[in-house]
């Protein structure tokens, strides 16, 4: 990405906590920080991959940026202007959801599903133009206009995800947040959907925030990748750099754990011990599982710094 370019979407110190325990009066006694001060930029036409294990806050990040959750702290800027979270979701940010079975209303036809965001946002008031737009969108995602009158249950998982993509495109968004869009699909169908998404990006100049746990797919589709752990970004770098030269110990272990479809790559798998624990102390969130953790890691949360083009939060690098 060009250094001079203005970021399209900027996230600054975004935090979101959820109450895990409430007292008798319904007041929160204990919080779980799903997002703990996350900052990143996404540039126009770029795909930023966001990876991490379940519970690391990647979905919360997507939903908070989208405006579905009200952030506890921090700001989201779009085109350099701060988004007012009180207004709820902004139509310039749209979302593709993980489960193609749950995200489409079974009682609406595909045409109605795709037209709904246009109605809500008041674009294409004239019925004929709206209909034409629905047909164009169906064509764009590789479905036919005859299918507009069918119901979601008549479609396979891959086709439903195409419908979800058409719906997200309906109001010409600037940013599309893709929350694990392919993890519910079969391998051969995943490739079809990913190819569609990258084709649409080239044709329409879309910007994606691609949330996933499949590291190989994220590497393929993303220009830059951010690795999250327990609500914080551990490392963010260009996809090539991150995968060829991971710097953060967590990135290293995560990459080593990917099952590679090659039986010769079995040997010497460095296993990471332990599991993600809930307690967020004052130190580095990864200290409990890190092979190179020192006393400092337990005491002090590392600040993010830029080293060799990697944005990294780790005490190992000065």
């Amino acid at each position: 990405m060009d250094k001079e370019m203005q970021p399209l979407l900027s996230v600054r110190n975004l935090a979101k906590r959820f109450a895990v325990k409430k007292d008798f009066w319904g007041r929160a006694k204990e919080y779980n920080y799903a997002l703990n001060g996350v900052s990143f930029d996404i540039f126009p036409g770029e795909t930023l991959g966001l990876v991490g294990e379940s519970g690391c806050g990647k979905t919360t990040a997507g939903r908070t940026i989208m405006g579905l959750y009200r952030p506890t702290a921090g700001q989201v800027f779009l085109h350099g202007k701060e988004l007012d979270v009180a207004n709820g979701p902004d139509k310039r940010i749209q979302m593709i959801f993980q489960d193609p079975y749950a995200c489409l209303n079974p009682r609406m036809t595909v045409g109605e599903i795709i037209a709904e965001p246009m109605e809500i946002n008041g674009v294409y008031k004239e019925a004929g133009a709206k209909k034409q737009r629905v047909y164009d969108l169906l064509d764009m995602v590789g479905l036919s206009k005859e299918q507009a009158n069918r119901f979601p249950h008549e479609f396979s998982g891959g086709q439903r995800q195409r419908i979800g993509i058409a719906r997200a495109l309906a109001v010409n968004p600037d940013v599309i947040i893709c929350d694990e869009p392919i993890s519910a699909l079969d391998v051969s169908i995943q490739a079809q959907v990913v190819n569609l998404m990258s084709r649409l990006q080239k044709e329409l100049g879309l910007t994606y925030l691609f949330i996933a746990h499949d590291l190989a797919m994220v590497k393929y589709i993303s220009h830059r990748v951010a690795v999250m752990y327990k609500g914080s970004i551990m490392e963010l770098a260009k996809a090539e750099d991150l995968y060829n030269n991971p710097m953060h110990p967590y990135t290293k272990t995560l990459l080593a754990a990917i099952p590679v479809p090659d039986p010769d790559v079995r040997a010497d798998i460095a296993l990471i011990k332990g599991e993600v624990s809930q307690n967020v102390g004052t130190g580095c969130p990864f200290a409990g599982r890190c092979p190179s953790a020192s006393d400092r890691c337990w005491a002090e949360k590392p600040k993010t710094k830029v080293i060799n083009g990697h944005i990294i939060a780790c005490h190992l690098y000065v």
Binding site: G158, A191, Q192, A216, Y220, I221, Y243, P261
Partner: peptide, 24 residues
């Protein structure tokens, strides 16, 4: 072959399209 090809390899770039198995 199609199944193995449709997995993104680590050395692939975005300019290469993923080989897919068409249809259902």
């Amino acid at each position: 072959k199609g199944l193995l090809n449709s997995l993104p390899r680590m050395d692939m770039s975005l300019d290469e399209e993923l080989p897919v198995i068409d249809g259902q």
